[in-house]
């Protein structure tokens, strides 16, 4: 899966579901945790989106701020998970 495909899927989900369709100004480097876009409740729905959209499960140990501070960081995390599953 291409990087921008992962990134646009994540942007779409965060923009539509978490920001109620108001994520037009969202970009790969928007500080999601710092601006309160993702909190512990939004994290639950984001993780289940990642699981269903990319068919990978993010291990609990990876659910840490440095992996979720931006769409770019989440994209890298998803990519690593896909690689580990053996189909990048």
């Amino acid at each position: 899966m291409q990087d921008d495909e992962i990134s646009s899927a994540l942007t779409g989900f965060i923009s539509e579901k978490i920001l109620e369709g108001e994520g037009a100004d969202l970009d790969d480097d928007t500080p999601l945790l710092e601006w309160g876009v993702i909190d512990s409740i939004a994290m639950v729905s984001l993780l289940s989106f990642i699981q269903s959209r990319f068919a990978v499960r993010i291990p609990d140990g990876e659910v840490v701020p440095r992996n979720f501070h931006s769409i770019a960081a989440i994209g890298q995390l998803v990519k690593r998970a896909l690689l580990e599953r053996g189909d990048a």
Binding site: L19, E20, E22, L33, W35, G36, V37
Partner: peptide, 22 residues
């Protein structure tokens, strides 16, 4: 936008006071 308002809150308030919806 909601994102702009969240940013506004985050620049002045602790994270738990950032609005969720507009």
């Amino acid at each position: 936008s909601l994102l702009a308002l969240k940013r506004q809150c985050a620049s002045r308030l602790p994270r738990y006071m950032v609005i969720d919806h507009v």
